[in-house]
Amino acid sequence: MIKKLFLATALLAHLSAHAQKMHVLHIRNSKELQAFLRYTGKDIPFISGHRGGVNKGFPENSIAAFENTLRHTPATFEIDPRLTKDSAIVLMHDATLDRTTTGTGKVSDYTLAELKQLKLKDVEGNVTEHRIPTLQEAITWAKGKTVLILDKKDVPFEMTARLITRNKAEGHVMITVHTAKDARWYYDRNKDFVFEAFVKTPEAMAEYEAAGIPWSHIMAYVGPDNKPQLQPLYDALHQRGVMCMISTAPTYDKQPDAAARAAAYQAIIRDGASLIEADRSIEAAAAIQSLIPAKSDKQRFFGRK
């Protein structure tokens, strides 16, 4: 009887551990990240969790939110670095603390030590046990698991470039750039940086080409709306080996009907994007599961651990 109880307990422990395994991206350096993002026409569509993915119980811009998403799907994560009073870099979308933490006022009015005393709130405003992470903590955690995409907030370019380079994180940290000029600034300082670049128009695409930024270093953000006018831009970027991304956070994620959201996510991939940046990261991933090709050379980048 005792032996049977022991075996049952061991089996439950094994099943529980297996259930907690996370999807990971096997990307070790900048060259592999560039290969992962290169458009081939037979790629595996995937999700980027906007602010880490917004789900009940898991605060945005928290490592807990990243891990929760990765338990369901492989993903990259768009995150928001901000400066503290003592020039530390923490993850926080808003300039103020009120919406997502137990604190009030501006992030920049607090030291890191003071911010670490606060607790994070989830999407419904519930206080959790999770704390505000530093960008350094996120970069250390992400290695061997995923790719972080740093949005542009109030952190000086010099600090961002220095932190990525010092951590040798060019393979798992990307930089969001709004202009070709910004991309050129970073590229001149480190040829291994990879960008999420705002390329919403043919004119913007021409500016990146004129600036001499290699397309191998760019994943293109084409906007929040899946519209027919994007087709020529998709075609031109795909010819250059560039994957395209649509963010559904301000648009389709807000639709009240789940079936309508699923149809929107699927249409985005069918129409030419390879990546969806979503608040509803887990839901969007489930919706596009049927669109994953049976065979793809990109499969080597996807795993579990």
Results as ranks from 00 to 15, higher is better:
H178Q: 13
T179I: 08
A180M: 08
A180V: 09
D182N: 10
R184E: 03
R184D: 09
W185M: 02
W185E: 06
Y186T: 08
Y186G: 01
Y186V: 05
Y187P: 00
Y187R: 07
R189L: 07
R189D: 07
N190Q: 10
N190L: 14
N190D: 14
V194Q: 10
V199D: 06
V199Y: 08
V199S: 06
K200F: 03
K200A: 09
P202R: 06
E203G: 08
M205T: 03
A206C: 02
E207N: 11
Y208W: 10
Y208L: 10
E209N: 05
G212R: 05
G212D: 11
G212N: 11
I213D: 05
I218V: 15
Y221K: 10
V222W: 02
P224W: 12
P224H: 10
P224D: 13
P228M: 12
L230P: 03
L230I: 06
Q231I: 09
Q231V: 12
L233C: 01
Y234F: 15
D235V: 00
A236K: 02
H238A: 05
Q239F: 01
R240D: 04
V242N: 03
C244W: 00
M245D: 12
M245S: 14
I246E: 04
S247V: 13
S247E: 13
T248K: 02
T251Q: 08
P256I: 13
A258D: 07
A259H: 00
A260Q: 08
R261W: 03
R261S: 04
R261I: 04
Y265R: 01
A267G: 04
A267C: 00
I269F: 02
A273H: 01
A273G: 02
A278I: 12
A278T: 10
D279A: 12
D279E: 14
R280Y: 13
R280Q: 15
R280A: 12
S281D: 15
S281N: 14
I282E: 09
I282V: 15
A284D: 09
A284G: 12
A284P: 07
I288A: 01
S290A: 14
S290D: 08
S290K: 06
L291K: 00
K295S: 10
S296E: 05
D297R: 09
D297Y: 02
K298R: 08
K298W: 04
F301N: 03
F302K: 07
F302A: 05
F302V: 09
G303V: 07
R304T: 12
K305S: 09
